[in-house]
Design a binder for these strands. Structure first.
Lengths: 193, 193
DNA sequence: TCATGAATAGTCAGAGTTGACTAGGAGGTG
DNA sequence: CACCTCCTAGTCAACTCTGACTATTCATGA
């Protein structure tokens, strides 16, 4: 019942998604994705891209579609999608949309151990965090405002903004309650001079 | 300027956080963490725990504190925190609380390629997702209601609930707008029979 | 009392990931 | 026209992680 995907890296999904339109070589895809800002949505380094192409080929989702060369540049291996690849793309997308998965954001880890820091310090740190969240919100809103694409293609940025706003609200609420908890909380830190 | 932590796995942070109270051996910590429900906050498998103990020891954050044995059970290696480990715990916690980091949830990847699916199908999938989110919310709320700990020690569950609610609101809003976008969106899928 | 299963304690192969490195071509500058 | 830097295209070693596996002991009950 453990049926796992042959390629688990979400970068593989992006590769399938681009190859559905036209055959590409890894380096060109790398430029396309950077230009399109896909590194905001999908973790992606230059090195892992070649890995993923190899994995997708081994799994039969893509095949070499010949090589091309431009000027005296090195030869480039162009890949095209297979039918199995097209099917995997659809199936994978369906799963990702329909099934929310319990994830592990870093802030959750920190919150679960927050009592390890003194409340006075936490107040300062959370204010810093609010500044950082504000910067991320500004960045995301600038992207929404500056893009001329249809909102359908910016929906992931809207989602990110929704989560950031929720986090801001949570942190503010947390800050308000720290005073009530201070007596108990500060007690854990008494032996520290 | 790239200063990286010697141990990057957040499970290492949890280990430091527990050892600050008392020396433990890996297996016992494993039980403690499961009993405390820490697997909801920190990704954590039995195997990786031994890895992380090894890494922390190599980095000088913990040291062997002798071995113990109970009955005829196998001998257990007990570890204790060092001063460097105590410092790392504080420093790491400060970073995690103060600096929000751009992360890559799976749903963001799916949203960034959502046009690859037909809008009629997306409507169905998103309703499934709402059901799943509802289940996760019920679970989290049951944990809040059933625990008798001080709210300070449940704050990570409150954060999770805040994010889940934000996602529910986002998905509902998305569903409402699909009709407006349908003409354009369905156009991408015309050539498919 | 003997089997069965659950808990204890840990190892390890294989898969995945990161980031640094190579190596030549194109473009710009003084 | 010599030099420098960025771009193109890809490889690879080292590190990390996952999950399956081993081997022993304790508890249960038929």
């Amino acid at each position: 019942m453990k049926s796992k995907r042959k390629v688990g890296n979400l970068l593989g999904l992006a590769v399938l998604g681009y190859l559905v339109r036209e055959p590409l070589h890894p380096y060109e895809l790398s430029r396309l994705m950077r230009a399109h800002g896909d590194d905001r949505s999908i973790k992606f380094t230059h090195g892992s891209l070649y890995m993923v192409f190899g994995q997708l080929a081994k799994a039969g989702f893509i095949v070499e579609h010949g090589t091309s060369r431009e000027g005296q540049r090195p030869e480039r291996t162009v890949y095209a999608l297979t039918d199995a690849g097209r099917a995997e793309l659809k199936d994978w997308m369906r799963e990702l949309v329909a099934e929310p998965v319990h994830e592990h954001p870093r802030f959750v880890a920190a919150l679960s151990m927050i009592a390890a820091l003194h409340p006075d310090e936490v107040v300062v740190l959370l204010r810093d965090r609010l500044d950082g969240l504000r910067r991320q919100l500004d960045e995301a809103e600038a992207i929404l405002a500056g893009a001329d694409a249809h909102p359908l293609f910016l929906v992931e940025e809207e989602y990110r903004i929704a989560l950031l706003n929720a986090e801001v609200a949570f942190v503010r609420h947390f800050l308000e309650r720290i005073d009530d908890w201070r007596p108990l909380w500060a007690g854990f830190h008494e032996e520290e001079r």
